[in-house]
Nucleic acid binder design. Structure first.
Length: 415
RNA sequence: CGGGGUGUGGCGCAGUUGGCUAGCGCGCCGGCUUUGGGAGCCGGAGGUCCCGGGUUCAAGUCCCGGCACCCCGACCA
């Protein structure tokens, strides 16, 4: 990626209408564009980050044997009426509209009902189960108040997974495997040390649900964390009987702010019964499918990552989600060598951004910090005189001169 | 949805008790110089002062009504 060709630009000033750090930095560096309150477009750099996050999630989902699909945004009213979730009094985030023939439709804020209705046509026998399907969808939610930049929007990308099992036992096994997979996802995007499995309200269906909460002051939730057990409990269910049940002691808990980056639910057979989702078991008996629902807020995750790692200079991406691994800053006298290095890295499949613009050194160095690419390589007459390429990790202060061989080796190993 | 704040070139802002042709910085275009932490000088382009009504000789400025954005709260199966 050539910065000379990239249409987005960094800004000196931070947007005045944003307070949230994630939105300020992402807009300033040209990752996202604000369309309206709570609605942000993904620009080329931002899209790359989102795709990185998606592929990390996709890998874990596929390893669990889940199948990816893509449902529709327009949804049928009658499906949601069956489960009593069409009424605005029951679900207050609906966007609704009408077809030309006056038939009402909804915009998908979740997909449990439509996806289960669809699966009803395929899951007839115990031989068809288990079935686990997921998608990356743009969810539309008419939030009364958008806030916290991309962490609480009206339009956002979510990975949602739905599981269909023959029994509670089969469901529980899968449910637990999702917990492990989610923990790996958060570890792989760089948030492993800050993200904790959290007991939360189970709603109408089960005693508890599980959330994945990442520690950040920018979060909206208050959780109580047992650091040694690496388990937390959401404030909303913090009661003595609950603590006893989940094996936590009040005295071991630390009150912290966190952002909910994932959430998983068991529905049991309640929803299946509402939606008439039954299968025939080995004896030919009709039984309700056991349902589970599992979400990860993909774009929220991007915001949380920015919140967690950014410093005074700008964004700091973990390697795994960075839009590129290397940022070459071509300073005076280093133009030609920069080009050679760029081509060579491309040929080695190292994702590289090259700042080949005709601007001052200071601006290039500042932009490199702002964009937050893990490794910066400065090429200039000075670096070349000193023996090659000056490298600096985004997370570190020190620079180091290496020759091309060492550099290629370093980047090859890091991948 | 309740409370508070803010709307002026792409971005960040100034504009006094209403008064001349609406300014400044950044960015943008052209030229010369410069080249390791957001360079300098010269010249230029760019405006529905959020929208609608009203008061006035005169409105960015005052009044009324909308809208948008931000923050706090409520909400967040």
């Amino acid at each position: 990626m050539r910065l000379s060709k990239l249409f987005t630009k960094t800004r000196k000033e931070i947007p005045a209408d944003e307070v949230a750090k994630n939105a300020r930095l992402l807009i300033q560096a040209g990752y996202i564009y604000k369309e309206m309150a709570g609605v942000y477009a993904l620009l080329p750099l931002g899209l790359r980050v989102v795709e990185k996050i998606k592929s990390i999630i996709r890998e874990e989902m596929n390893n669990l044997g889940c199948q990816e699909l893509l449902m529709t945004s327009l949804q049928r009213k009658e499906l949601w009426e069956r489960t009593d979730r069409w009424d605005d009094k029951e679900v207050d985030v609906w966007f609704k509209s009408k077809l030309k023939n006056n038939k009402e439709v909804g915009f998908g804020w979740s997909h449990e009902e439509p996806i289960s209705e669809m699966m009803r046509g395929y899951l007839k026998s115990y031989k068809d189960l288990p079935a686990n399907v997921y998608q990356f969808q743009t969810k539309l939610r008419n939030e009364t108040r958008a806030k916290s930049g991309i962490m609480r929007g009206r339009e956002f990308v979510m990975k949602d997974l739905y599981s269909y099992s023959v029994s509670e036992a089969e469901h529980d096994k899968f449910y637990n495997s999702v917990i492990d997979a989610y923990l790996r996802v958060f570890k792989n995007v760089g948030l492993g040390k800050k993200t904790f499995l959290t007991f939360a309200s189970g709603g109408a269906f089960t005693e508890f649900s599980h959330e994945f909460q990442t520690l950040t002051e920018a979060g909206e939730d208050t959780i109580y964390l047992d650091r040694s057990k690496k388990i937390a409990i959401n404030e909303e269910v913090l009661r003595d009987d609950v603590l006893k049940k989940v094996g936590l002691k009040r005295s071991d808990l630390e009150k912290v702010r966190a952002s909910e980056v994932g959430n998983i639910f068991s529905f049991g057979s309640v929803k299946s019964e509402q939606l008439n989702l039954y299968f025939s078991d080995k004896k030919g008996q009709k039984k309700p499918v056991i349902l589970g629902s599992y979400g990860i807020g993909v774009t929220r995750l991007m915001g949380v990552i920015v919140e967690c790692f950014a410093d005074d200079g700008g964004i700091v991406w973990p390697k795994s989600v960075a839009p590129a691994q290397v940022h070459i800053a071509a300073l005076h006298g280093g133009e030609k060598e920069s080009e050679n290095l760029y081509v060579e890295l491309q040929n080695n499949n190292v994702e590289t951004i090259i700042d080949d613009r005709e601007i001052s050194p200071g601006e290039k160095l500042n932009d490199a910090d702002m964009l937050g690419i893990p490794m910066r390589v400065v090429v200039s007459s000075k670096s070349l005189e000193n023996g090659g390429f000056e490298i600096k990790k985004r997370t570190e202060k020190e620079t180091k001169i290496v020759n091309k061989k060492e550099l290629l080796q370093m980047l090859g190993n890091s991948n």
